[in-house]
Protein backbone atom coordinates (compact mmCIF):
# COMPACT_ATOMS: atom_id res chain seq x y z
CA UNK A 1 0.00 0.00 0.00
CA UNK A 2 1.17 3.51 -0.76
CA UNK A 3 -0.21 6.57 1.00
CA UNK A 4 0.05 10.01 -0.60
CA UNK A 5 -0.83 12.91 1.67
CA UNK A 6 -0.23 16.66 1.96
CA UNK A 7 -2.43 19.75 1.89
CA UNK A 8 -5.00 20.42 -0.83
CA UNK A 9 -3.68 20.91 -4.38
CA UNK A 10 -0.04 19.96 -3.75
CA UNK A 11 0.31 17.68 -6.77
CA UNK A 12 -0.78 14.33 -5.32
CA UNK A 13 -2.69 13.23 -8.39
CA UNK A 14 0.00 14.27 -10.87
CA UNK A 15 2.54 12.39 -8.83
CA UNK A 16 0.41 9.22 -8.85
CA UNK A 17 -0.24 9.52 -12.56
CA UNK A 18 3.19 10.57 -13.81
CA UNK A 19 5.56 8.98 -11.34
CA UNK A 20 3.70 5.92 -10.05
CA UNK A 21 1.94 5.28 -13.36
CA UNK A 22 -1.56 5.00 -11.87
CA UNK A 23 -4.21 4.59 -14.60
CA UNK A 24 -7.53 4.28 -12.79
CA UNK A 25 -8.62 6.72 -10.09
CA UNK A 26 -11.57 6.02 -7.80
CA UNK A 27 -13.04 9.22 -6.41
CA UNK A 28 -13.70 9.01 -2.67
CA UNK A 29 -16.22 11.85 -2.91
CA UNK A 30 -18.58 9.87 -5.14
CA UNK A 31 -17.73 6.14 -5.24
CA UNK A 32 -19.33 3.40 -3.14
CA UNK A 33 -17.43 1.88 -0.20
CA UNK A 34 -17.22 -1.38 -2.18
CA UNK A 35 -15.44 0.42 -5.06
CA UNK A 36 -12.72 1.44 -2.63
CA UNK A 37 -12.00 -2.16 -1.67
CA UNK A 38 -10.94 -3.02 -5.25
CA UNK A 39 -9.59 0.37 -6.39
CA UNK A 40 -6.14 0.81 -7.93
CA UNK A 41 -6.00 4.31 -6.47
CA UNK A 42 -8.48 6.10 -4.19
CA UNK A 43 -8.50 9.90 -4.30
CA UNK A 44 -10.04 12.14 -1.63
CA UNK A 45 -10.19 9.50 1.11
CA UNK A 46 -10.97 12.32 3.58
CA UNK A 47 -14.19 12.93 1.65
CA UNK A 48 -15.04 9.25 1.72
CA UNK A 49 -14.72 9.42 5.52
CA UNK A 50 -17.38 12.16 5.66
CA UNK A 51 -19.69 10.05 3.49
CA UNK A 52 -19.13 6.92 5.58
CA UNK A 53 -20.04 8.94 8.69
CA UNK A 54 -23.24 10.16 7.01
CA UNK A 55 -24.17 6.58 6.24
CA UNK A 56 -23.51 5.45 9.80
CA UNK A 57 -20.46 3.34 8.87
CA UNK A 58 -17.58 3.49 11.37
CA UNK A 59 -14.69 4.99 9.36
CA UNK A 60 -11.95 3.37 11.46
CA UNK A 61 -13.35 -0.17 11.07
CA UNK A 62 -13.90 0.44 7.37
CA UNK A 63 -10.34 1.70 6.99
CA UNK A 64 -8.96 -1.38 8.79
CA UNK A 65 -10.93 -3.55 6.37
CA UNK A 66 -9.78 -1.54 3.35
CA UNK A 67 -6.13 -1.92 4.39
CA UNK A 68 -6.64 -5.66 4.87
CA UNK A 69 -8.46 -6.32 1.60
CA UNK A 70 -6.75 -3.93 -0.81
CA UNK A 71 -3.08 -4.11 0.03
CA UNK A 72 -1.79 -2.93 -3.32
CA UNK A 73 -3.89 0.27 -3.37
CA UNK A 74 -2.56 3.79 -3.60
CA UNK A 75 -4.51 6.15 -1.31
CA UNK A 76 -4.66 9.91 -1.46
CA UNK A 77 -5.91 11.87 1.50
CA UNK A 78 -5.44 15.52 2.39
CA UNK A 79 -4.01 16.73 5.65
CA UNK A 80 -6.93 18.55 7.26
CA UNK A 81 -6.17 18.68 10.99
CA UNK A 82 -3.86 21.68 11.26
CA UNK A 83 -6.43 24.39 11.84
CA UNK A 84 -8.61 25.75 14.63
CA UNK A 85 -10.85 23.10 16.20
CA UNK A 86 -14.23 23.56 14.42
CA UNK A 87 -17.17 24.72 16.53
CA UNK A 88 -19.52 22.36 14.70
CA UNK A 89 -19.52 18.93 16.32
CA UNK A 90 -19.84 17.01 13.04
CA UNK A 91 -16.93 18.91 11.48
CA UNK A 92 -14.88 18.26 14.57
CA UNK A 93 -15.58 14.54 14.58
CA UNK A 94 -14.87 14.27 10.84
CA UNK A 95 -11.51 15.97 11.27
CA UNK A 96 -10.60 13.69 14.16
CA UNK A 97 -11.65 10.61 12.19
CA UNK A 98 -9.49 11.73 9.27
CA UNK A 99 -6.56 11.92 11.71
CA UNK A 100 -7.23 8.46 13.15
CA UNK A 101 -7.82 6.82 9.75
CA UNK A 102 -4.68 8.50 8.42
CA UNK A 103 -2.67 6.91 11.25
CA UNK A 104 -4.12 3.50 10.33
CA UNK A 105 -3.34 3.90 6.61
CA UNK A 106 0.17 5.24 7.30
CA UNK A 107 0.90 2.32 9.60
CA UNK A 108 -0.23 -0.26 7.03
CA UNK A 109 1.53 1.43 4.09
CA UNK A 110 5.02 0.45 3.03
CA UNK A 111 5.53 3.93 1.62
CA UNK A 112 4.10 7.28 2.75
CA UNK A 113 4.64 10.36 0.65
CA UNK A 114 3.88 13.91 1.67
CA UNK A 115 3.47 16.26 -1.26
CA UNK A 116 4.46 19.91 -0.78
CA UNK A 117 4.47 22.26 -3.79
CA UNK A 118 4.61 19.27 -6.13
CA UNK A 119 7.69 17.87 -4.39
CA UNK A 120 7.39 14.32 -3.05
CA UNK A 121 8.83 13.96 0.44
CA UNK A 122 9.13 10.27 1.33
CA UNK A 123 8.30 10.20 5.05
CA UNK A 124 8.11 6.41 5.37
CA UNK A 125 9.79 3.63 3.41
CA UNK A 126 12.13 3.90 0.47
CA UNK A 127 11.88 5.78 -2.79
CA UNK A 128 10.94 3.14 -5.39
CA UNK A 129 10.81 5.13 -8.59
Amino acid sequence: MIFITGGAAQGKRSFAENVLGVRAFTDGSSCTPEDVLIAECVTGYHELIARLMNEGIDPMSFTERFCRENRSAAVMMNEVGSGIVPIDRGEREWRENVGRCGCIIAERSETVIRMVCGVADVIKGERQW
Binding site: G81, S82, E96, N97, R100, C103
Partner: peptide, 8 residues
Protein backbone atom coordinates in the same frame (compact mmCIF):
# COMPACT_ATOMS: atom_id res chain seq x y z
CA UNK B 1 3.59 19.43 17.01
CA UNK B 2 1.09 18.36 14.37
CA UNK B 3 -2.59 18.39 13.49
CA UNK B 4 -5.59 16.75 15.10
CA UNK B 5 -5.33 13.07 16.14
CA UNK B 6 -2.00 12.49 14.45
CA UNK B 7 -0.37 10.47 17.25
CA UNK B 8 1.36 13.26 19.19
Amino acid sequence: TGGSKCGK
